[in-house]
Design a protein around this nucleic acid. Structure first.
Lengths: 337, 337
DNA sequence: AACGTTCTTGTAAACGTTTACGAAGACACT
DNA sequence: AGTGTCTTCGTAAACGTTTACAAGAACGTT
């Protein structure tokens, strides 16, 4: 059945006693007589023939691969997104090439220009920081790119983004309804796309509700990781005594919860806690954490579909999708009665 | 600088006024005169030329891609492994193609034969269940494959595996030292490779220490997920009252911890808890969970290096690496005094 | 019986590289 | 000046497919 040697079209053709064109046609389901078809199939079967992907790619100009570049693979939300993208893309007959870039824009730019080597038909990119040179490179790309995340005005690229501002609004509103007054905010770096958006959301929502917004209610972690969250939460609780904390991220929320526990503060009794991204981890812990669902898997799915659509129709109008947030309420934000 | 049109060797050659052979040589760093070299580099720069990956692959017979197939991408331990593999592989100049297979062997077999289409130079495979047909396919593969996980006797393939039995030994020993007597075991499906190995380890270790091993101290979750863990832990606690529980997995451990909390049982006061895999999640939760480190990232790294070695030297002797476990002791298993 | 269609099949070119080979030039040595 | 070696460069073949084109066979139509 399977052979050790690699077999080619020519070998199959010889064995079947037909031309290579016929072999190719039969194997690709193009019209052919029963006779030829049978002979070819038999020969192919016997030789364990499978068409070579690179040769095919070269000829047809498509690799049937889609590249995915995410900055921070440690973050569970990216894992969830990647899984969804993988699913959609695979169903559409593409393979997924993953390249975890470093945080710096340098890396991403290098990756983008390497994309022009044509190892994939298109790319899904989720940049942590959007810089000028990155945008320039995005624009110059020969191959279609879908961006997950906000893009500056006027950049005409397919993209999918979350509505962090609305999401923050949901969180603050929920906390305010529970009678919380001093709502603190543990953010990640504000020079990142999500960091900036979430800060904007926090300010807007607090402002709208006339809630106090002293500087000592805000703190920025060095990045969006658990370890950074521990440090940030300690700093926050050293400088103020909030009755609620919203975190830019579930990882930061879990870290904050740990620090609260260390200090003997109960959740949600003393402090209500809300995370963002609504990853599995939020419901794993005890108490489970209320989290703003920013539609990560939906975003992932849309991004993948957008790219596939563009590959099918390069002239389709540019589409910028915004996914609406939802609040998943769990134990960490409401006191049971 | 960057051009919208795709540029080829021929274009560069024309522009530089040299032959395509010279262009190829210069760009690949083969010896050439200063004159030619300068002209070619200038032309290439102006046209934003980058060599086409598929054409190159076809010619040289290498794709510079490595395929990775893992069964369960939801499990954080696989995420950690994937990250490590990605790093090693990228450093060696390969791209990583990820294919998350379903649980069934069918999928994996299909994947293996698709590998023969030559879209990658080799594959790293981590099968949940090792069946006969899978092994047959592994053997028949034209391209090198490295397996993460145990292989039956006599299968001559590069592989890396954890020592679950020794790992279980560490966990049970630790618990016994703390004076725990009724040590329960929440396992995953026993017809999987890790499930079987961990069961073997549990039985061996308990036996060795002469600890009781009633059937009602053991329970098997339907799979290695959090949700299945909840169900399994409930069942366990319905049927017995252990003073320690070891789980086949950190996810199962977290689920068990949640169920313990529900029932008002304290960890580690009433019940000591130990997980396996030592993923980040074990230290995220409160109390943090003692976990058997089965060397997942080390295994991942070894697997990647093994494959890269074999690609460089196809005739290298087969290597089967076993990674020794370590116990990472956290709050869930020792009562502070 | 000659003609026009339609269907089937083979021949050959093309995709964009890398590289074996040979020609020609440069250079040193006798 | 003749010979040999070394270097540099261009010509052309090759990697394994897909597919445009043409040739022939089969068939119905007039």
């Amino acid at each position: 059945m399977a052979e050790a040697k690699k077999s080619t079209l020519v070998l199959v053709a010889e064995r079947a006693g037909v031309s290579i064109a016929s072999v190719s046609r039969v194997l690709n389901g193009l019209p052919a007589s029963e006779q030829i078809s049978a002979k070819v199939k038999a020969a192919a079967q016997e030789l364990g023939y499978v068409a070579d992907a690179t040769a095919r790619s070269l000829k047809v100009g498509r690799t049937e691969q889609i590249a995915l570049a995410v900055a921070d693979v440690g973050n569970p939300v990216y894992v969830a997104m990647m899984n969804e993208i993988s699913r959609v893309v695979t169903d559409a007959g593409y393979r997924l090439v993953t390249s975890s870039t470093g945080n710096d824009a340098e890396d991403q730019i290098a990756l983008l220009s390497s994309l022009n080597r044509g190892y994939a038909d298109g790319m899904i990119l989720s940049p942590l920081r959007v810089t000028e040179p990155l945008i320039a490179e995005l624009r110059a790309s020969r191959l279609p790119i879908v961006v997950i995340g906000s893009l500056p005005e006027g950049v005409e690229l397919d993209s999918v983004r979350a509505d962090s501002v609305a999401g923050m609004g949901l969180a603050i509103k929920h906390l305010a309804k529970q009678g919380r007054q001093r709502i603190a905010f543990v953010n990640g770096p504000v020079d990142t796309v999500p960091g900036a958006a979430r800060l904007r959301g926090y300010v807007t929502a607090m402002d709208k509700r006339g809630l106090p917004m002293h500087g000592d209610l805000q703190v920025n972690a060095d990045d969006f990781t658990f370890a950074a969250g521990l440090v940030a939460a300690e700093a926050l609780l050293d400088q103020s005594a909030p009755d609620a904390i919203v975190c830019a991220n579930d990882l930061l929320a879990v870290a904050t919860m740990k620090v609260l526990a260390r200090r003997g503060l109960s959740v949600p009794g003393d402090v209500a806690l809300i995370g963002m991204d609504d990853t599995e981890i939020a419901e794993l812990v005890t108490p489970s954490i209320t989290s703003v669902n920013l539609g990560s898997v939906k975003r992932a799915r849309e991004a993948a579909k957008l790219l596939i659509r563009r590959l099918a129709d390069p002239d389709a109008p540019v589409k910028q999708v915004v996914i609406a947030p939802k609040l998943t309420i769990r134990e960490s934000s409401v006191i049971p009665h």
